[in-house]
Deep mutational scan, measured.
Amino acid sequence: HMTFVALYDYVASGETDLSFKKGERLQIVNNTEGDWWLAHSLTTGRTGYISSNYVAPSD
């Protein structure tokens, strides 16, 4: 899985979204569905959809 880092804080707007904080590391589970990616937070252990605009590759 690809690992990304959050560029900004994000508060989930629905049950399927994932809230995260700036600097949080996220593993991308599925990024084939446009701008919203299914991600797993390595910080909180939660999984949900994130906006690809809010993250950048961590490598």
Rank of each mutant, 00 (worst) to 15 (best):
1 H>N: 13
1 H>I: 13
5 V>R: 03
5 V>E: 07
5 V>T: 08
6 A>V: 13
6 A>F: 02
6 A>D: 01
6 A>E: 01
6 A>Q: 01
6 A>K: 00
7 L>G: 03
8 Y>C: 15
9 D>G: 04
9 D>L: 05
9 D>Q: 01
10 Y>A: 04
12 A>P: 04
13 S>C: 14
13 S>V: 15
13 S>Y: 09
14 G>S: 14
14 G>T: 14
14 G>R: 15
15 E>S: 11
15 E>W: 07
15 E>T: 12
16 T>S: 13
17 D>S: 08
17 D>V: 08
17 D>A: 09
17 D>F: 15
18 L>C: 03
19 S>A: 06
19 S>Y: 03
19 S>P: 05
20 F>I: 05
20 F>T: 02
21 K>I: 08
21 K>W: 05
22 K>Q: 08
22 K>D: 01
22 K>V: 07
23 G>T: 01
24 E>S: 01
24 E>H: 03
24 E>W: 08
25 R>P: 06
26 L>W: 01
26 L>I: 10
26 L>H: 02
27 Q>C: 15
29 V>M: 11
29 V>D: 06
29 V>Q: 07
29 V>L: 15
29 V>Y: 09
30 N>F: 09
30 N>Q: 10
30 N>V: 10
31 N>G: 14
31 N>M: 15
31 N>K: 14
31 N>I: 13
32 T>E: 09
34 G>P: 12
34 G>Q: 10
35 D>L: 09
35 D>W: 07
36 W>D: 04
36 W>K: 14
37 W>T: 03
38 L>V: 06
38 L>P: 01
38 L>S: 02
38 L>G: 00
39 A>R: 00
39 A>D: 00
39 A>F: 05
40 H>G: 02
40 H>R: 15
40 H>V: 15
40 H>D: 02
40 H>N: 07
41 S>H: 05
41 S>Y: 04
41 S>L: 03
42 L>F: 07
42 L>V: 07
42 L>I: 09
42 L>Q: 06
43 T>N: 08
45 G>P: 00
45 G>I: 03
46 R>D: 08
46 R>L: 13
46 R>T: 05
47 T>L: 08
48 G>T: 01
48 G>D: 01
48 G>W: 04
48 G>L: 01
49 Y>R: 08
49 Y>M: 10
50 I>F: 02
51 S>T: 06
51 S>R: 15
51 S>E: 07
51 S>C: 15
52 S>R: 14
52 S>F: 07
54 Y>M: 15
54 Y>L: 14
54 Y>K: 07
56 A>M: 12
56 A>P: 05
56 A>V: 14
57 P>Y: 10
57 P>H: 09
57 P>M: 11
57 P>K: 09
58 S>A: 14
58 S>P: 09
58 S>K: 07
